[in-house]
Design a protein around this nucleic acid. Structure first.
Lengths: 344, 344
DNA sequence: AAAAAGTGTGCAAACGTTCCCAAAAACGTG
DNA sequence: CACGTTTTTGGGAACGTTTGCACACTTTTT
């Protein structure tokens, strides 16, 4: 069950030309007389000709599509990044294929390899929290697949990368808590595997240092699965609360919302007593209770920049050897103060 | 810049066989000796052979991929539907390509036609709130492209459809408000173009009727852009509040969150005085303040069912003529009562 | 022992493009 | 008007598969 469309051959036959001529007219390549070109174009328009992208891909050995790997599309940050990616990709004639790793290394690898076999022209990827071994990416990269990392990037991989200024974002958030008078500030974060985890931890520590607050390792809790499992989060919260933190800095979107949820569930009483600052791109934070201070990443822009870089690699005539790591600034959105004695 | 992989030809050459034999061994078709099959399979495994899906698509005139059109992936409901779709599609060997209409008819049409030209084998679509004219879909459908609608479905289009029990969901939510003592219940809803709008309106009306509450048209506000524009939402809220509703039933995910946001912004004082019940699949509702009663759709399941139906159409040997409309039940999640005098 | 049936394999065409190469047409130029 | 040069066109291979057909060989049937 497939539907018929007119091909270049049909046009050639109808016009008494060769397929090569028609192809040239359509693609506007090489020398071709203005006259025949017009003729062909007019006829193509008339029969509503659409080039078959599959055939084109086969011949040209590229697909005009780029693969995206994120852990979860149901995540404000990532869906905004994807919107940024699309905005550039479509403009430049590329299609995007989105895959989700669900924070699983196995799934991530499977998806990447699936995409690669579908001859994507390039890959945009934010690593899963489980990922430690990126040999399979090196392998593909070595074979010539352009890759640009964003958000969660590996350290020793020579290619373009786009990240937020995680250090500063974390520093600002922590400093904000300190300036509101908090002294026992916990840090709930993602798997140590991730670059963002390490960078944000450093920002957190730097802020403590600046204000002469001792860093206490037991106040830092890692969630290996990035908050995908509720049990993990609740466990972390359960371990943290007995230490009586008066503030908590949380380092990722899902963890932030998940943590508040876990606190409300396990210790509803204290949820409002602890000041929260966390990375999140949710547009709904204003509705949250308890309210929180959030670090917003320029997600849309991150997607755009990463895509520009990727396309530049794809379309480069010679292998690219100069790589850059773009760092984009985050924005601190301060908690809204309660009005009166009601939490609004 | 493209990377080399081994082809069927390479294998044939290495093994001294013909490409046909290799192809048959790989595809496990026709009569082929157990022996050669093993030989080929072993070698293919060794060189990590991956069939080129592009070539296969060209030859077979199908792509093993299905297109998805939703208005927005950054929407809890739709991202859950997509997860459901993926769960089935991948199992059955299909790839999914996601496109967003951003509630724009033009964008929707463009995306669909783009997908069609990329020879997707079938289409799963939830119409944009702007869409009135679906002639272009009929056209493709007439040419043989299998289409299954979900959530937002057209009335007179003979194909499979999967929807939630919108009438009942709306009825339950409205009834809940009534049973909590509300008598002036407003209804904030999407564009009249959408099936879900009409069905939910009926459910709302039925509940009012059951409890002898007069239906007042001025209490119903439509948002043509489905809450994509803040101005639209704020305007609706501004028109609604002077009518002094004590309850409000909201008919979509984005509108629900958007409306609360708009109320808090424009009239923070009353936001907590109006009982809210709305359709939303957000996992974050528990964090919201004011809290609300929500109608949850079985989004994941909806994606699964729609995909099953679509694949059955794709793989049908003869044109399908018997169509079904599956209706899935919604779930009412009652508002959590405030604990003590704090809104938790 | 010959014919029929069954089994495994290879050849070659096809899917719809693009593009190299050569041929043909058009044009200058001495 | 013969020649070179430029412009335009067509032939045909190639991209990596799948598959109808034919052929060769083996086995069964008569």
């Amino acid at each position: 069950m497939r539907f018929e469309t007119s091909t270049i051959k049909d046009i050639a036959k109808a016009l008494g030309l060769s397929t090569s001529t028609v192809s040239r007219a359509l693609r506007d390549r090489y020398e071709i007389s203005e006259e025949t070109k017009k003729l062909v174009l007019a006829y193509a328009e008339k029969v509503n000709y659409r080039a078959n992208p599959i055939a084109r891909s086969l011949k040209e050995r590229r697909s005009y599509s780029i693969g995206i790997i994120v852990s979860e599309i149901a995540n404000n940050f990532f869906s905004q990044v994807i919107n940024g990616i699309e905005s550039i990709a479509y403009d430049r004639g590329y299609h995007v294929i989105i895959s989700q790793s669900h924070e699983s290394y196995k799934q991530e690898k499977l998806n990447v390899e699936h995409l690669a076999s579908r001859s994507i022209d390039g890959l945009l990827i934010a690593l899963s929290s489980e990922t430690q071994d990126i040999a399979y990416l090196r392998n593909l990269y070595g074979k010539g697949l352009p890759i640009v990392f964003f958000d969660r990037v590996p350290e020793d991989f020579d290619t373009h990368k786009v990240i937020a200024n995680n250090f500063k974002g974390a520093f600002d958030a922590t400093e904000h808590l300190i300036l509101s008078g908090k002294r026992t500030i916990a840090h709930l974060t993602n798997s140590e595997n991730l670059s963002i985890t390490r960078e944000r931890l450093k920002g957190y520590q730097a802020a403590l240092t600046k204000y002469n607050i001792e860093f206490r390792a037991e106040l830092v809790k890692y969630c290996q699965h990035g908050g995908m499992h509720n049990a993990e989060l609740e466990q972390a919260v359960k371990e943290l609360l007995p230490l009586n933190p008066d503030g908590i800095f949380i380092s990722s979107d899902r963890l932030t919302t998940g943590c508040i949820m876990a606190m409300k569930k396990t210790n509803p009483g204290v949820a409002h007593k602890i000041a929260i600052a966390g990375f999140t791109n949710s547009s709904l934070v204003e509705l949250f209770s308890p309210s929180l201070t959030s670090v917003k990443q320029p997600a849309f822009e991150m997607g755009q920049v990463a895509t520009e870089l990727l396309i530049s690699m794809i379309e480069a005539k010679r292998p690219v050897t100069e790589f850059e790591t773009k760092v984009l600034d985050t924005e601190l959105v301060r908690m809204q103060k309660p009005i009166g004695n009601r939490f609004l």
